[in-house]
């Protein structure tokens, strides 16, 4: 019995870590830049495919790929905001309209990125094996690579949290997320902060992609599923709240694990039931303001 509990809990934490990681970036992009980035999952896919390509072609350790993939993906996100979303902000002066249009633009981006990846890598699943052995503790058996992914997800989340709370840039970001107008009055360069936030969101997605490629077979159509999970987690935790995303991610992972233990085919149904129930009780998410 105890063994089962341990299995279910650790299994849930692992999925939760992944969920948390993929949703923090989205939360950031929505919280500060007001962009519900539907192409979020495509950045995850890019991170995963870069890693697969680097690992299979050049034998580079996937962990090293975190460092290799991070800068270009950040720059891609940064540049996208600087070119497209900045212009969009200039032409739409009304915030309600901006959010709708920003979502449309990210839909367009999703199509473009997906198609490029499809042309380059085709649609068959790809994969490699990394740390494919099991680790035993307390009698329960787990995949080593999944535990590594959990550890990494927690580290990245913690580092990110510290960055937001301690660094100057982090404080500027938080100020901007609370009130962009006021932050601008205090001399924060809003456009630059937003572009950085969008870049960081893309970067976190990219890192999540690197980690996911260690434990899953990947394909060019994988992005949308992760986008949906990320949106769910972000809403569950409270929009724009980074700790909320963490809690939301882990909560969803644990619930999924429990349900999957009882009846695997009901896992997704359980997600939606829980989210719907939670929204009815707390309409702004767990940590929503």
């Amino acid at each position: 019995m105890l063994l089962t509990v341990l299995n279910v809990v650790v299994g849930g934490l692992i999925m939760g870590g992944i969920y948390a990681l993929i949703s923090m970036g989205l939360s950031m992009q929505y919280g500060v830049a007001r962009i519900l980035n539907v192409s979020h999952g495509e950045f995850i896919m890019l991170g995963a495919f870069f890693t697969w390509a680097l690992h299979t072609a050049a034998g580079i350790n996937p962990l090293l790929c975190v460092a290799i993939c991070a800068p270009p993906i950040f720059l891609l996100g940064f540049a996208l905001h600087r070119t497209i979303y900045k212009r969009l902000r200039d032409v739409t002066r009304v915030s309600g309209l901006f959010e709708g249009n920003a979502m449309l633009v990210s839909f367009g981006l999703m199509f473009v990125i997906k198609n490029i990846a499809l042309m380059r890598w085709g649609s068959s699943p790809k994969g490699y094996s990394f740390m494919a052995y099991s680790v035993e503790f307390g009698g329960a058996v787990f995949s080593a690579n999944r535990l590594l992914v959990l550890a990494f997800a927690v580290c990245v989340s913690a580092a990110f949290y510290v960055f937001l709370n301690r660094s100057r840039l982090g404080k500027a970001i938080r100020a901007a997320s609370q009130d962009a107008q006021a932050a601008a009055l205090f001399g924060i360069k809003i456009n630059r902060v937003m572009a950085i936030c969008f870049g960081i969101g893309a970067l976190l997605a990219g890192i999540a992609g690197v980690l996911l490629s260690m434990i899953y077979q990947i394909n060019t159509a994988m992005g949308m599923n992760y986008t949906i999970i990320a949106i769910i987690v972000v809403v569950l935790g409270g929009l724009g709240s980074i700790p909320g995303s963490l809690i939301g991610g882990f909560a969803l992972g644990l619930i999924g694990s429990v349900v999957a233990y009882i009846e695997p085919s009901l896992q997704l149904v359980a997600y939606y039931v829980i989210i719907m129930a939670l929204l009815l009780v707390r309409p702004k998410g767990i940590l929503g303001r």
């Binding site: 299995n7 279910v8 299994g11 692992i14 999925m15 992944i18 058996v141 787990f142 995949s143 999944r146 899953y216 599923n225 999924g256 694990s257 999957a260 233990y261 695997p264 085919s265 896992q267 997704l268």
Partner: peptide, 16 residues
């Protein structure tokens, strides 16, 4: 004789 959904993310409990 177990059914799984298409988007299953973790097969650990089933394998175990």
């Amino acid at each position: 004789n177990v059914s799984v959904p298409p988007d299953i993310g973790d097969m650990t409990p089933i394998i175990n």
